[in-house]
């Protein structure tokens, strides 16, 4: 009755052959396609480096001014704008300016990539039930698989550096924007869609004139979530060579530097709060039409 106690598994040798075959296969694949993939991502890398240089080399008052302006345009709130300026002043004063700029560049580009890729996928999912059935489980995997697991193939393919880091961040951060775009479009009032149909609107006119505008609050919630998740990946991304606020945190973990870890961690929190408040108030302003005297 051994087989009841011991789970009948593949033999040790078979298992190791299996693993080796998969590893070798992937290695061959990355040798064959690694370079072309790198070439494919090189414009993104150039843009990322350029943006980071812009942020770190420009005079700091100018950068803070630009960030404050964006915060004001997004939120139209003095409180949030002043809070943003103060947060950046404190960050700079505590010597974290360069790391913060690197993280800011990374998060901005990652968010941009997620929006550019995620919204079209969300639209596709909303229009086709088949697409929804295929994409949903992929998103589930992306959200639940431990980040370290997909770091392995990413590093095998692209090595260590900014692009694999960006990719890892995007894999983790893209699901909310895809899901909420899909949801937002599917939740658009059927009566309004029927009216658009009855007036002869084409599929394109319905998408851009009715569905996307009405789904915007949800899409914006997705953007907000995506930014938050991208920020939470900063430390893990620093393990594969992304510079920024994650690097000192990593150093603090291995050397038990409490203060260093805390300072950089709080800087990440400050960035998160700023992004969150600005994008949320912007999202709310987008639906000003919902405020009303009647139902």
């Amino acid at each position: 009755m051994d087989w009841l106690i011991e789970f009948p598994s593949l033999g040790r040798r078979d298992l190791s052959t299996l693993r080796q075959t998969v590893d070798d296969g992937f290695r061959t694949f990355s040798r064959a396609f690694g370079e072309s993939l790198e070439a494919f991502f090189s414009p993104l890398l150039k843009f990322l480096i350029w943006f980071e240089h812009l942020l770190t080399n420009a005079p700091w008052p100018l950068v803070i001014g630009a960030i404050a302006l964006l915060a004001w345009l997004g939120s139209r709130s003095w409180k949030i704008t002043v809070g943003t300026i103060l947060a950046f002043l404190v960050i700079g004063y505590f010597g974290m300016w360069e790391d913060t700029m690197a993280t800011l560049a990374m998060i901005s580009v990652a968010t941009f990539v997620c929006i550019a890729v995620g919204i079209p996928i969300g639209i596709l999912m909303a229009r086709s039930n088949i697409a929804q059935r295929i994409v949903t489980p992929i998103l589930d995997v992306m959200q639940t698989i431990p980040s370290f697991v997909y770091l392995i193939p990413v590093v095998m393919l692209l090595g260590i550096g900014k692009v694999p880091g960006l990719l890892a961040v995007c894999i983790y951060a893209i699901p909310p924007i895809v899901r909420l775009t899909n949801l937002g479009i599917r939740l658009v009032d059927k009566d309004v869609m029927e009216a658009a149909d009855a007036f002869g609107a084409s599929a394109r006119e319905k998408l851009f004139g009715v569905q996307i505008p009405l789904a915007l609050p949800n899409i914006f919630a997705g953007v907000n979530q995506t930014i938050m998740m991208a920020l939470s990946m900063v430390v893990i991304a620093s393990m594969i060579g992304v510079k920024g606020l994650g690097t000192p945190v990593l150093r603090a973990i291995s050397n038990q530097y409490l203060a260093l870890g805390l300072m950089n961690g709080l800087a990440i929190v400050a960035l998160a709060i700023i992004f969150d408040r600005v994008s949320q108030t912007y999202g709310k302003r987008l639906q000003a039409y919902r405020e009303s005297g009647h139902d």
Partner: peptide, 8 residues
């Protein structure tokens, strides 16, 4: 339409 179907 009965429920108006206006674009909010």
């Amino acid at each position: 339409f009965q429920k108006f179907g206006l674009l909010p």
